[in-house]
Write a protein that binds this DNA or RNA. Structure first.
Length: 469
RNA sequence: GCCGGGGUGACAGAGCGGCUAAUGUGACCGACUGCAGAUCGGUUUCCAGGGGGUUCGACUCCCUCCCCCGGCACCA
């Protein structure tokens, strides 16, 4: 099946065709570690994690590269305010970020590239841009990109230079030749970290680190560039201008993907509004899989509204699917060879796998893919009720494993082993004996005791089944 | 102001020029049941922001208005 991907550059869905056979180079704008990772970051990275997972599932050899902008204005600002070194801040916030990503099962990144590890490439690009006439050094040792020299400026976001000048609400920096010009290199101010350059001490401007990183790893053109929509202008626009002018290769990126923003109860998330949700706080309140499921419940390009009640609701919704997975596990333990509902379940499994794949192939439509899983879950539950056999159940387990692998869900490890199964058989039998004697106190005592261990007993028409947490 | 993206049933949220608007949550009814849990069946939405237009037919395409969100070159 052809994968269709919405490309911001063309504003439509396109057939996904990698540049080099099955190899896919994918870059996603990472964090600037100047503050806590929040739930908006997490939405973006969960979305692109699924993109990478799905492409890999489809047989693509994806190299997923993400930058860490470990030198930037906001970081310096934080440094001044906190009295801590920028390296110290980077260490803390990157650590927190990676911890959150691990817990959210965002495990598909191949390499996190730190801006400051690419100084040679950054300087090379700036020098190259000056040599080609796309950039100029100002008196103070800063270097700017001359946007008037780049005809495609604005092609990604649809911005027009003249209109920006008309709508500008801030005074134009007088070191610049044109209002739209942006800094490639910023001259050092007192107390700021700095690196040597042909223009004196300074640091890279925001934007240049990403092209330095991608040109080094991917060359002048690569397959997918992702990020949240807020980065479209000026950040991604600047990347295009830098890279295409520097390498002379167009287009710099084949597919631009942008994820929708996250709101909190209908408002922008801000510390000053008191509605700021650090990722670690959200993870303290909800299970990582629930949060992940919440994000994937909407299409990645849609903005989503974050509200505790909505995440709770997603949790209830997700519990239904998780319950089906547990039911499958429990039923498989009974190991019937065949059942009356085998054919129905096997057909449903095939249908579900197909529907899931079709949804994912259509611009990674996780919401529709999840809808397919829900429909399938009902089929599974129905088949189990009627009675289904081992082969069909094994297929169902495999199907859920497939969904889970792509979405990063259903990862609960089952702790079953032979001893546990033997003990459970024994307990279930003892409880059944008690029930037959109408000794419900003993029966309920066994059930409650197991519940405390995370094991649920369910009495069904054709016997007891148990599920581990 | 300019650029981009949205406004769908109680809520969340998809698809599609034409079958009852997917799926989930919630609520209600029923089945199952010693109790519990899970599950199954059914019910609950029917001016899809307002107005115009195209069409045999629009939630889906076009125009317009309203509202919401993000971005808009300094860099706090």
């Amino acid at each position: 099946m052809t994968i269709r991907v919405y490309n911001t550059l063309s504003r439509r869905k396109e057939d996904f065709v990698p540049l080099h056979g099955r190899r896919v180079s994918m870059f996603v704008c990472g964090i600037t570690p100047y503050d806590a990772t929040h739930i908006g970051h997490a939405k973006t990275y969960v979305a692109f994690d699924v993109v990478a997972r799905y492409l890999r599932r489809k047989g693509y050899d994806v190299f997923y590269l993400q930058n860490v902008t470990d030198i930037e204005d906001r970081l310096i600002d934080r440094m001044h305010k906190s009295g801590r070194s920028w390296k110290d801040l980077v260490k803390e916030f990157v650590g927190e970020y990676l911890d959150g990503m691990t817990r959210l099962a965002c495990t598909s990144v191949n390499l996190y590239a730190y801006a400051t590890d690419y100084m040679p490439e950054i300087l090379e690009q700036i020098e190259g841009l000056i040599a080609k006439g796309f950039a100029y050094a100002a008196e103070d040792g800063s270097v700017y990109y001359d946007t008037t020299r780049y005809p495609d400026w604005g092609k990604l976001s649809g911005q027009k230079v003249e209109e920006h000048i008309a709508g500008a609400r801030v005074a134009v920096d007088e070191r610049k030749r044109n209002p739209a010009d942006f800094a490639l290199w910023k001259a050092q101010k007192p107390g700021e970290p700095a690196w040597d350059s042909p223009w004196g001490k300074g640091r890279p401007g925001w934007h240049i680190e990403d092209t330095a990183i991608t040109v080094r790893h991917f060359g002048p053109r690569y397959d997918i560039h992702g990020g949240a929509t807020e980065l479209m202008f000026p950040h991604h626009e600047a990347e295009i201008a830098q890279a295409e002018a520097f390498t002379g290769v167009k287009p710099f990126v084949n597919v631009w993907m942008h994820g929708g923003m996250l709101m909190v109860s209908g408002e922008e998330m801000h510390k000053s509004l008191g509605n700021f949700w650090a990722l670690k706080d959200a993870l303290a309140r909800w299970e990582p899989e629930v949060l992940r499921f919440f994000y994937l419940n909407a299409h990645y390009r849609s903005p989503i509204d974050f509200a505790p009640e909505l995440v709770d609701e997603a949790g209830r919704s997700y519990a239904r699917l998780r319950e089906t997975v547990r039911t499958i596990d429990a039923e498989r333990r009974r190991t019937p060879d065949a059942g009356s509902a085998d054919a129905a379940l096997r057909a449903a499994t095939a249908t579900a796998l197909e529907a899931f794949d079709a949804a994912m192939a259509d611009d990674f439509n996780t919401r529709e893919a999840i809808a397919a899983i829900f429909e399938y879950a009902r089929s599974v539950n129905k088949a189990v009720e009627v009675g289904t056999g081992r082969v069909a159940l094994d297929e169902a387990a495999t199907a859920f494993a497939r969904f889970g692998e792509v979405l990063g869900l259903f990862a609960r490890a089952s702790a079953d082993d032979a001893v546990v199964e033997g003990l459970m058989d024994l307990l279930v039998r003892l409880r059944e004996d008690a029930r037959k004697r109408k000794d419900f106190a003993t029966a309920d005592g066994i059930r409650e005791g197991l519940a405390k261990l995370g094991i649920v007993l369910e009495d069904t028409r054709d016997g007891v089944r148990w599920k581990s947490a």
